[in-house]
Amino acid sequence: MAEPATERPLPAWSRPAGSTESLALPTEWPGRVTREWAWGGSTGKGVRVCILDSGIEAAHPLVGELAGAVAVEVGDDDEVSVVEDAEGDLCGHGTACAGIVRSLAPDCELFSVRVLGAGFTGSGTALLEGLRWAVDQGFDVINMSLSTTKSKFAGLLHEAADRAYFRRSVLVASAHNMPVESYPWRFSSVISVGSHEEREAETFFYNPSPPVEFFARGVDVEVAWLGGARARSTGNSFATPHMSGICALILGKHPELTPFQLKSALYLTATNVEGLGD
């Protein structure tokens, strides 16, 4: 039986003859990309940032209002449901990450996807399903200050990370600072983040020796903590929301950028690349 005639999108790997003129870029890239061009004047307004973590304490003075909060629940047979989250933060960590993003991009919209609370046994499933859900929602930036060492999740996380990349959701993931294999930060479709010891929130370095691609502030950071409190914290998981905040600033000013272009802009504006030129 003949296939019904339908209009299909062009395959991504070829162009019809003579059509390359239509590949115009929506953004005018300057001769030299500076921080001023990339995020000067931006507050992250209009950018939807998802914090995949332990939940977020809403209305913490350093976090402000949330645009939404859900929890990933894992049942007995690995049955997964995503429900409205009434618990808030079960640890403090998600609130800390949210506060860091807010400090850099004060007008972004913050969403919480809680993947902690399913018990250790269900944690890999919760992480994977939380990520898939976040990608489906089309968040502009997804902050993942966490990883899994379970290789059975690696392939599935890789698929989710690539899907995010092509749907223009930027995954920003913490690198591991111990010599273990973990995911998803090792995938090239994510922005992976380690720590440096400098004090400035907008100081970040491009790493010419991957897999860790960027180093951001992650030592002795004052963060939001539970009960409206503050704490001082260290770890790659606090460097990651610094990069997420900077991504939100850039996307607030240049919402048309793809993850590839955004990563290029990050490279060109990194402290060790731009040479503090502006």
Binding site: S54, L90, C91, G92, H93, V115, L116, G117, A118, G119, F120, S123, S145, L146, S147, T148, T149, S174, H176, N177, M178, V180, S182, D220, W225, L226, G227, A229, R230, A231, R232, S233, T234, G235, N236, S237, F238
Partner: peptide
Amino acid sequence: STGIGGWVLVTRQPIVLDDVSKDA
């Protein structure tokens, strides 16, 4: 499933916190 130990176990990420006693 809760607390700092639970978070570290589940996320495989080490963390350092100071002044954490302010968290009620």
